[in-house]
Write a protein that binds this DNA or RNA. Structure first.
Lengths: 194, 194
DNA sequence: CTTGTTTTTGAGCGATCGGTCAAGTTATAA
DNA sequence: TTATAACTTGACCGATCGCTCAAAAACAAG
């Protein structure tokens, strides 16, 4: 019963997350949300307190989903880098299947100003959490000898994020699909050579 | 007289541009705009037709300003790459002086979905215009021998945009200012070696 | 079935949104 | 000075915003 409620709540959050990811926080209205999660305002506000509250849960869930997705690719790969490459390939090459071509955390980081304190702080915290997770992976990759130790795990993680973000942003326009694969290949070539 | 009017109109657009750049299209209200450009709704709508109309002018002006800024740095440099590097240094190292750390065209590209047709199409057009401008510069850099011709001007332009966008996004968070300069250096090192 | 508790509903609140327009002001020319 | 054209003003429009809450529905315990 507890699990039943939990499941439905997570389900609602995931649907809200998709809409927020696509449209951003400000362009998503509570009426839009009511429709996609099939709840009336009273229930939404009893469960999440506010639009911000629901967005917060959505952003946290998004981050957890991304990490779970990476874990999934890593479990089917024999090396960290090949798992990461499979993840990047999936995100970029099938980006039409997602609500947006751009990472929700990155969208949030460009949408919120310093004045929207609560949501910006949460966003920054989740970015740090994700970077920390990447550091764990790159540390392992260094230990495995997949990457040399000219650079620290943090530096590899930073490089990865910059490349990945830049690439997704650049490819978020029509008519350049055939560029995606060679650009991903270049990204991983650079990663191994910096 | 014609110039007088033109000047004031450009002035208004520039102020609106700063606000749109900072807050994005959806989070900027017409009341916000009224205040910063000191015009009443009737005048604004007589001059620009709609909030979208004023945003369009703002985005076009932003793009023109960026190109003018690059031209300025190029005029004080003896090489294309050093001019571009001065531009990148200025944008990133003094980003606190700007309304946002992130390029307004990139923000727009992540804010608008396919359904917001007019603004998204304008945004894509301006992105193409800017890329074309970069191609001219990189063509010259190749001719000058600043870059080898293993890559086309377009490929250099693409690489530049991906790195620059990724870098600005990554640095748009507090407490990592000392990372900016080495990352810029790395970006230009990579550019010469791809 | 009754009773008490929890959850859901949707009408509707005050605020704010993008935008309009009649009235007022200013600029120009005769 | 006066008539006319051009621009500016701000009260105000209907729509939509985020959100509330009394009433209804669903559920649980005895």
């Amino acid at each position: 019963m507890v699990n039943k409620v939990k499941f439905e709540r997570d389900d609602v959050i995931r649907q809200a997350s998709q809409l927020f990811w696509e449209k951003g926080f400000h362009a998503t209205s509570t009426r839009d949300l009511q429709e996609v999660i099939n709840m009336r305002p009273g229930s939404i506000y009893a469960a999440f307190g506010s639009k911000e509250g629901l967005y917060s849960e959505s952003l946290k869930d998004y981050t957890a989903q991304i990490q779970a997705q990476i874990e999934g690719f890593l479990n089917h790969s024999d090396a960290i880098l090949s798992g990461l490459r499979a993840f990047v390939n999936n995100v970029i090459l099938t980006r039409q299947d997602y609500p947006s071509a751009i990472c929700m955390l990155i969208k949030a980081n460009s949408e919120f100003t310093e004045k929207e304190d609560t949501l910006r702080e949460l966003n920054l915290k989740l970015l740090r959490v994700f970077e920390q997770y990447l550091c764990v992976l790159f540390n392992q990759a260094i230990k495995n000898g997949e990457l040399n130790n000219n650079r620290t795990a943090l530096e590899y993680a930073q490089f990865f994020q910059i490349q990945f973000t830049g690439l997704r942003g650049y490819l978020n326009r029509p008519g350049i699909d055939e560029l995606a694969q060679p650009m991903i290949d270049q990204m991983f070539t650079l990663l191994k050579n910096i």
